[in-house]
Design a protein around this nucleic acid. Structure first.
Lengths: 217, 217
DNA sequence: TAGATTGTTAATCGATTAACAATC
DNA sequence: TAGATTGTTAATCGATTAACAATC
């Protein structure tokens, strides 16, 4: 376990996790790479390779123990440690993420939000506190927050990111449609809806039929 | 123009577009691949190759005409044709997307939403109509809708997708944390937040410093 | 044992980068 | 012309897939 893993493979792990967790929670459920791959629309060898990177391995002729796999993947991804996060920008999208309670399955816990508009500060519908942005640095440092979620307009994204970095954030999840840059050691993950829309729009403008299933992206 | 383009390159186009649109709207503004690449944190050659795929090209020693590039990229991506879409599932995320007005810059126009809960039907805060899911097929067919946005819980994602496909949808944008499958010719784009979280969580659990800027994903 | 399934090493494929030629 | 910049062909790199060996 814990061999080389590609960025692509890393991003497929939640897919396996989601499938495995939907299975009955029985110690003795085994599943083969073949079943997994066809259920998820992936290659069978790819699945074996992905799982080999995170798990002690399956048993020939039997498959992988589902319960073990879940444990191994969660452990590999660090979902067992809770990752505290702050969110900046409480517009529509920010509020939606703030009240989404599905993140805790991934170890993500949004502890507070920030906004530059004093009128938006207070308790959110989600029950979470929204502070003025001026309080962010202090709070992040005190609570040793490591994840910052950016849901501000593009124009202020870099500025907000800089404050987050100064506050000790080590990973930034950016939803603003803007390119931002971070210093070495800080991870930047862009949630790039514009990129997705480009793919959709291009497909429609082509009006051509491509090959099956390879058209899932 | 319109040579081969890789999926990656296609998804970088909105980045160029966003940068170029932030420039003064002057017919005579030229920009070099060098400036573009360093502003966006990309490789210079990569930028030239990307632009070559969509544009008639730049002028040696001068660069690319910004206004031309914008036109070429928008044309390539089909942002000039309006793409009508429907959204299914009016939970927090669905509502956030419904009222987000930034999509029209990408040619995306959400004309209506659907939900299986009759209590949620009516006029949304966004001013858009929410219909019962039973009306979806008929409405999509009549209006020749080609894009379906799925923001329902994972458990009903496949079912909703099947109805969309039956209704003539040709591109599906899936926000549900579920694997769904579509027939040939229909494009499926997953907006995979779980995948992003995997990258963030793994980075933090590693507690190691990686190389600069290559850590933007 | 035979057969099914895992795991690994080698081959292929696609995307990025480097080297260089073309052009204003 | 010389120099800056674009554009293309070749080399590299990384990820996926294929072939095959190992194991229960």
């Amino acid at each position: 376990m814990s061999k080389e893993i590609s960025l692509q493979a890393l991003q497929r792990l939640p897919l396996y996790l989601q499938y495995l967790k939907a299975l009955p929670a029985d110690k003795d459920i085994y599943i083969s790479a073949k079943v997994l791959s066809s259920a998820l629309g992936l290659g069978e060898i790819q699945v074996r390779k992905d799982l080999a990177a995170v798990s002690d391995g399956g048993k020939p002729k039997v498959g992988y123990c589902a319960a073990e796999l879940i444990k191994d993947i969660e452990n590999f991804l660090g979902y067992d440690n809770v990752n505290d996060a702050v969110l900046v920008g409480t517009g529509k999208l920010g509020k939606a993420l703030l009240s989404y309670d599905g993140f805790k399955a991934y170890g993500l816990n949004i502890v507070a939000a920030f906004d530059s508009d004093p009128g938006k500060c207070g308790i959110d519908e989600s029950g979470k506190q929204i502070f003025h942005i001026s309080k962010m640095e202090n709070l992040c440092e005190r609570m040793k927050i490591e994840i910052g979620i950016i849901t501000v307009p593009a124009a202020s994204a870099q500025e907000v990111c800089d404050i987050l970095v100064k506050s000790g954030i080590r990973a930034v999840w950016n939803f603003a449609p803007a390119h931002i840059s971070v210093p070495a050691g800080v991870l930047l993950k862009n949630e790039n809806m514009a990129a997705s829309l480009a793919v959709l729009s291009k497909h429609l403008s082509e009006k051509r039929v491509c090959e099956n299933n390879s058209n899932s992206i």
